[in-house]
Simulated scan of single mutants.
Amino acid sequence: MARRLRRVGLDFVQKAPVRLVFAREIAAAPEAVYRALAEDTAGWPEWFTAVTSARADEGGGGREVRLRGGTRFRETVVAAEAPRVYAYRVDVTNAPGVRALAEEWRLTPVGTGTRVQWTFAADGPAPFRVVLRLARAGLGRAFRGAVTALDRRLAGR
Rank of each mutant, 00 (worst) to 15 (best):
L101F: 09
W44T: 00
V51M: 04
T108E: 15
P83H: 04
R55W: 15
R7P: 15
A38S: 12
T76R: 15
V98D: 07
G61W: 15
V21G: 11
G9Y: 08
A135K: 02
T93Q: 09
G138P: 12
A16K: 01
A87R: 01
R106K: 13
T93Y: 09
D40E: 15
D57W: 10
P96F: 12
A54G: 07
V78R: 02
R89Y: 07
F73R: 00
G9H: 04
V18L: 08
R74P: 09
A121C: 06
V92T: 14
A56Q: 13
T114C: 08
L134T: 07
V77Y: 11
G111R: 02
P45A: 02
Q117I: 06
R99C: 11
G59A: 10
T52Y: 13
P17M: 06
V65E: 12
L20N: 08
F48T: 07
L67H: 12
P127K: 00
G62H: 11
R136P: 10
D91Y: 08
V33G: 03
E75R: 00
Q14I: 01
A102W: 04
R6V: 11
W47Y: 13
A32Y: 03
R6I: 06
P125L: 11
E46I: 01
D123S: 01
A146C: 05
T52F: 10
G140K: 00
R19K: 11
R144I: 05
T108I: 04
R141W: 15
A126C: 03
A121F: 05
V110E: 14
V130R: 06
A137R: 07
G97M: 08
T52H: 09
I26G: 03
A100Q: 13
T114G: 05
A102D: 14
F48L: 04
V77K: 01
A32K: 11
V98S: 03
R136Q: 15
Y34R: 00
F73L: 14
R68I: 12
G140W: 01
T93V: 09
V147H: 04
V98Y: 03
R24C: 06
D91E: 14
E104T: 00
R84T: 13
A54E: 12
V131S: 07
V85N: 04
V51Y: 10
G113L: 02
E64S: 00
E75T: 02
L10N: 06
G62A: 01
G70D: 14
A56R: 14
G59I: 00
V130L: 13
V90T: 15
V33K: 01
A36K: 02
V116G: 07
V65G: 06
V131Y: 14
R129K: 11
T148S: 12
V90N: 08
